[in-house]
Amino acid sequence: MSERMRLARRTVLTVLGAALAAPATLRAQSWPSGPIRLIVPFAPGGTTDVMARLVADRLGPRLGQPVIAENRAGAGATIGSAIAAQAAPDGQTLVMSNIASHGIAPTLYRSLRYDAMKDFVHIALVTRNPSVMVAHAGFEARSFADVVRIAKARPDGLDFGVSGAGSSNHLLGLRIAQAAGIRLNPIFYRGAGPAMTDTIAGVVPLMFDGLPSASAHIRGGRVRALATSGSERSPAFPDVPTFREVGVDIVSYQWFGISAPAGTPAAIVARLNREIREILKEPEVVARFDQLGGGIVDMTPEQYSAFVAEEIAVWAPVVRASGATVE
């Protein structure tokens, strides 16, 4: 452990040294001119934070400067994203763009301090994972068809737990309900943890959650997986059908990638894209992402930009229909 601490300190010293030397290196016009900060708009410790750090740790040695993950959580990941949007476009500031801040927030927040497309250059998609519809272990529905039947039989429909108003899983639930012609009432919680507790306890019969965070509970038999939202079945759960298979034509993923403030030089963007895509091919990274439940996708900056634009377009009508808007 002492060795590890020394290591941590050494990084810190490198950073400080670099900070002191900053004026000199700026003149040299080389990139990276100092430690790069990667703004993670979530609190430390979550799955997304872990994955972002995995990438940051490997990006540093490749660029010859440490990449330091900086957590700036709050307001549905929009605070950290706004800080990144206002940062200097010199390649020294990166941000973890994601479905909340760059897919849904543009429609959800009426006065957002950034434009998810115009204020950023999107560099590479890192990972995406499907969501899953789970049921309380003792709930009578064994399949999605059962849910539809039961929900239609009840005038006031079925309740489902969600991690927060305007979250991707909330909106996905509404999309599924609309497509299947049933009534599902969202019951909101402060995060996925409490919602999962109440699903396990049977307070709510159903829940939509990201597959990575729900997988341990599905394997443990505390909840039953009914369908996943991927385009094909998840390799981890080959027995669970997709929504498409059960007759609802909806494919939806949670995702995050790496972006930079608009105006970041194209050469830097290209270099970062290349390095990130190579990192995502490293066997160790692939193994850790598998374990965490995040699928890896290979995308160029252009593909990722198009992907973000498409996501904004997909979620806009859903957000509007849900009635959830934030001033």
């Binding site: 307001a75 959800l108 927060g164 108003a165 305007g166 909101f188 919680y189 402060r190 959830a324 808007t325 934030v326 001033e327």
Partner: peptide
Amino acid sequence: GTDVQTGQQ
């Protein structure tokens, strides 16, 4: 802050 049930500020 954000109302948990409606997402309203």
